[in-house]
């Protein structure tokens, strides 16, 4: 059981009166993974998470968390997950420590154990200084940490976070992300977001949801290779005579086409597109060394997650038309 799957979703469908939020999705998450659920608003991220956290049942399909069915063994599942809903609802009139203690007791921790755990999560989430403050008086960043601390307090195996960085300022976003990354050492984490850079920075694997269906589910590297393989353009800035450069690129068989433009000084900016996804960088650096040129930049333009996302959604849209 210990190295089995954490989440197994098969053919999950959720219909609300009149519309289908999630239609027949299947995916699996292994233990210790950080997986990002990515999708625009209304793609079905929150619905999926609510079903995973046993808040509401699926219309059809089977969902198992840590080997337990979310519908028939809801209590076993609830004990094993820490869930932070969208917008992170808290009781504003309670003090931080009091709230966490209340949540720990509610989740079935003993009196002494809940005290220990509250101290640990306060420390872990950097809340020790504000532990006696009233939640309603805290800044949004701190409140988000209280939500995280609540999700962690009973040492869950799986942590589900619905848009954990929404509405935070850039510095707070960075600290929350760091916190999530630290968590991944001991927990499985599923986060949903529509901020692409967030997934790029924190997750090992991405599941892209669009209108209730999974469009792609893979590691970021694989997705990049899949989507951008043939267009891995390389940018090189080399100080060399223009004619010589042109000759070299024309002779190099792997280059589909190239573009030369003068940069400041003796430098020329070369945009090189490979023929079939080969990485041109080693060849270029070898060439530069051989000829004794000056090289000041050598980068491969990998498609960002944003490019992948837009492309996947667009290609799906065309199919439907």
């Amino acid at each position: 059981m210990s190295d089995g799957l954490m989440i197994e979703v098969s053919n999950l469908t959720k219909r609300y009166a009149g519309h289908t939020a999630v239609s027949g999705i299947s995916f699996a998450v292994g233990r210790g993974e950080i997986v990002g659920l990515l999708g625009s608003n209304g793609a079905g991220k929150s619905t999926t998470m609510r079903i995973l956290s046993c808040y509401m049942p699926a219309t059809s399909g089977a969902v198992r968390v840590a080997g337990y069915d979310v519908f028939t063994q809801a209590d076993d599942v609830r004990r094993r997950i820490g869930y932070m809903p969208e917008n992170n609802p808290l009781h504003p009139e309670m003090r931080v420590r009091e709230y966490l203690k209340f949540r720990a007791r509610l989740k079935g921790l003993g009196w002494r154990r809940s005290r220990e755990r509250v101290d640990i999560v306060l420390e872990q989430c950097g809340l020790t200084d504000v532990s006696r403050k009233i939640i309603g008086h805290l800044s949004k960043g701190y409140r988000q940490r209280v939500g995280l601390a609540d999700a962690l307090v009973h040492e869950p195996e799986l942590i589900i976070l619905d848009e954990p960085t929404i509405g935070l300022d850039p510095r707070q976003i960075r600290s929350v992300r760091q916190l999530i990354k630290d968590l991944s050492r001991n927990h499985t984490v599923l986060i949903s977001t529509h901020i692409l850079s967030e997934v790029e920075m924190t997750c090992n694997r991405v599941i892209i949801l669009h209108e209730g269906k999974i469009l792609a589910a893979d590691t970021l590297d694989n997705l990049q290779n899949l989507m951008g393989g043939s267009t891995d353009q390389v940018i090189a800035e080399i100080a060399a005579p223009r004619a010589e450069l042109q000759e070299c690129w024309e002779q190099m068989g792997e280059i589909e086409y190239f573009d030369l433009s003068a940069a400041e000084g003796e430098y020329h900016r070369c945009a090189l597109t490979p023929r079939n996804g080969t990485d041109l960088r080693p060849q270029i650096s070898a060439l530069v060394r051989e000829r004794g040129w000056q090289l000041r930049e050598l980068t491969r333009n990998r498609p960002s997650l944003e490019d992948i996302y837009v492309r996947i959604i667009r290609s799906n849209g065309e199919e439907e038309i």
Partner: peptide, 13 residues
Amino acid sequence: YSGTFETLMTTPV
């Protein structure tokens, strides 16, 4: 209204 019902109902109560 405040959404805490969701956090309440996802604990083992």
